[in-house]
Amino acid sequence: MKRISIFLGNIFLPFIWMALTGQFTAGNFFIGVLLSSFALWVAAPQREILVLNSLVRLWRWLLFFLFFLWELTLASLRVVHDILTPRHRMRPAIIAVPLEIRKDIEITLLANLLTMTPGTLSLEVSPGSDVLYVHAMYVDDIEEFRRMVKEKYEKRVQRVLE
């Protein structure tokens, strides 16, 4: 909660800075970010280097977004190939993937990410929210698929929301 309010302050204070100086440009916004993180650093109870923190977070989200776009493109091309050639080469299955992440926001992000990427569709989360049931179109080896989901997607979701 504390961290979120500091993060928001780091966004809103630059706007106040821009309104005060009357110049709405990107450069002035950046100056505002620097100044507000200095002010918050002085005022905040826990001494973190805020501007670095939020920049790192922004960078992680950017990387995550690029990863998402790349995966979306790959998935679409694979599906296009499958639709435009007459032969069916799908090997579908519904697979239970045990989860290590527990928070709702993380599970939501992972489920949405899986729905948007290669031939997978998240169907259901178990009542204790520890297993995600995924319908996948191209499953050659079930253990391999579970490992791929955990290492490729779950790790990234965990890192971006950490």
């Binding site: 799908m90 090997r91 579908p92 299955a93 519904i94 697979i95 239970a96 169907l123 259901e124 178990s126 049931y133 499953v139 079930i142």
Partner: peptide
């Protein structure tokens, strides 16, 4: 599900 679906683990639930 499609007849060639290989496994349905949600059925256990």
């Amino acid at each position: 599900l499609w007849s060639e679906t290989r496994r349905d683990e949600l059925g256990d639930l």
